[in-house]
Amino acid sequence: MILKRIRNAILALAAPLLLASPALASKDKPVIGVVVPTLAAQFWNNYVDFMKKGAQELGVDLVVLNADNKPDQMVKSLEDLVARPVDGIIFTPYWATAARGLTLAKDADIPVILTDSYPDFAPQTSRFPNYKAFVGPSDQDAGRQMAEALFAAMQPDANGKKVIGVVNGTAGTSVAIDRRKGLEDALKSHPEVVVAGEVDGNFVRDTSQTVFESLYQGHPEIKGVWAANGGTATGVMTALKNAGKKPGKDVVVVAMDLNPENVDAVKNGDLLFDIGGHWLQGGFALVMLYDEIKGHPVPKAQDNVKLKLLPLTQDRIAQFQADFPAGVPPYDFKAHSRVYTPEAAAAAFELKYSK
Rank of each mutant, 00 (worst) to 15 (best):
D80Y: 02
N259D: 15
N242E: 13
A301D: 08
H219N: 11
I110S: 15
A96I: 13
A265D: 04
R5F: 14
K106Q: 09
S189K: 14
D257R: 11
A96G: 15
K106E: 10
A255T: 10
D157Q: 04
D270F: 00
A347R: 01
T238H: 03
Q217N: 15
T232V: 06
K188I: 01
M51S: 05
Q73H: 12
P325N: 05
T115E: 09
Y290C: 03
G269Y: 07
S77G: 11
V75W: 03
L271F: 06
S214F: 03
L3T: 13
V253K: 13
R127P: 04
V328L: 09
A142M: 07
V253R: 14
L240K: 08
K161M: 11
E184T: 05
N8F: 13
L39M: 09
L289M: 00
D61F: 11
W279E: 12
I293R: 03
L150V: 03
Q217C: 14
G88Y: 00
A347H: 02
G282R: 07
K70C: 10
A142K: 09
A55E: 01
G172M: 03
P247F: 12
A326I: 06
D120Y: 10
T207R: 12
P325C: 07
A122S: 15
F203L: 15
A346G: 01
Q42H: 14
A326H: 14
F91L: 08
G276N: 04
L280N: 08
K308C: 09
D257E: 12
V75I: 01
V252T: 12
P297S: 04
L286R: 11
P71L: 08
A41N: 12
H296M: 07
D80H: 01
A335I: 10
F333L: 11
V163R: 13
L39Q: 05
Q42C: 11
N202G: 07
G269N: 02
H278L: 00
E343I: 04
K334R: 13
G54Q: 00
L19M: 15
P111C: 08
T125A: 01
V175I: 06
L104A: 11
V251T: 12
S138L: 11
H336N: 14
